[in-house]
């Protein structure tokens, strides 16, 4: 559906897109994952038509998007702060896009009501947007985007202004809504959990470059580079590969290493040791502590080794 080819964009000295190529397939949710300031949001704005790329091509369903104004693309963009219009009530906000697309007011209201009901917001039509809770605002913003049946949904950190519990709950709901609507979506986030939870495929960006684009399982099984492995949460990243927790071995037959740091957790201990290949960090359960490290303190010895066969090697960049 959406295809980006060799897209470049520069703001002053900052390169926000460097020869980026990507595709989003029909019905797919693709997450753009990257650290803050890597150019994800700018990329989203280019796709929405709010910024123009310096070079490269964007197309949707085979048609070139160059010169197509933002309002003519039918891509709905949902913002981090939701960008609800304060001078309109909930119903007015949801109707906004329908009216712009030429739907008659009465029909627009009816459709908007149906959409609000579907999202569990029945009865809130006349509420002022600033009286809504964060979760309600998020749902209204989603309703406003979905009700126009956009060809593509663009989501800019849609959960980052919500607290952790609400975020988890809404993410599940969100995933269902997206699947029901069968609209392809592009989600921008800096939160790997969110990307893995919501997306079919994840594209990881670093300083305007695409480092790897794969399903969450593939990313975890074969990260492309050491940087990416660290970014998606691996702690023990060595030059020759990643050491996942399950590749670490404990027991007297393993080489002795000196304990550098200890962090007490609710259900165990995180220990950093100085091994032959560099520092290794591992989480020990209470039982493991008792078995292998009865006298655990900084400077004491712990037998830790690496099972080379269980290590993950870096895949080539995609």
């Amino acid at each position: 559906m959406l295809r980006l080819e060799g897209v470049c964009k520069r703001f002053g000295h900052k390169l926000v897109a460097d020869q980026l190529s990507l595709t989003v397939e029909a019905g797919e949710v693709l997450a753009l994952l990257g650290p803050s300031g890597c150019g994800k949001s700018s990329l989203l704005k280019m796709i929405a038509g709010l910024e123009q790329p310096d070079s490269g091509h964007l197309s949707f369903a085979g048609a070139d998007l160059a010169g197509v104004a933002a309002e003519a693309r039918r891509f709905a963009l949902m913002f981090q702060d939701f960008a609800l219009f304060p001078h309109l009530d909930v119903l007015g906000n949801v109707c906004f896009g329908l009216i712009e697309h030429g739907v008659a007011r009465a029909a627009a209201r009816q459709q908007a009501r149906a959409c609000l009901q579907q999202l569990g917001l029945a009865g809130m039509e006349a509420r002022k947007v600033w009286t809504l809770s964060g979760g309600e605002q998020q749902r209204v913003a989603l309703a406003r985007a979905l009700v126009t049946r956009p060809r593509l949904l663009l989501l800019d950190e849609p959960f980052s202004s919500l607290d952790a519990d609400l975020r988890r709950q809404l993410q599940q709901e969100f995933r269902q809504q997206l699947q029901q609507a069968a609209i392809p979506a592009l989600l921008v986030t800096h939160d790997r959990e969110e990307a893995f939870a919501l997306a079919d495929r994840v594209a990881v960006l670093q300083a305007g470059r695409l480092v790897q684009c794969a399903t969450p399982a593939q990313l975890l099984a074969a990260p492309a580079t050491p940087w990416l492995a660290r970014f998606i949460g691996y702690e023990n990243v060595l030059a020759e590969g990643v050491v996942p927790e399950q590749a670490l071995r404990l027991g007297p037959e393993q080489p002795a290493t000196a304990v550098r740091r200890i962090i007490q957790l609710a259900d165990g201990v995180r220990v950093t040791v100085a091994g032959a290949d560099g520092e290794l960090t591992l989480t020990l359960s209470a039982r493991e502590v008792q078995q292998y490290a009865a006298r655990l303190e900084v400077g004491s010895l712990l037998h830790v080794g690496i099972d080379r066969a269980a290590m993950l090697s870096y895949s080539a960049a995609c």
């Binding site: 929405a48 104004a69 309002e71 963009l77 949902m78 981090q80 960008a83 712009e100 406003r144």
Partner: peptide, 25 residues
């Protein structure tokens, strides 16, 4: 906020309509 204008644009409003429906109010 810039996002409010961008939201209106992606919901199908031309710059002129954005002025009347978002900026003017």
């Amino acid at each position: 906020p810039a996002s409010r204008i961008a939201a209106a644009r992606t919901l199908g409003a031309t710059p002129w309509r954005v002025f009347w429906r978002v900026e003017w109010p």
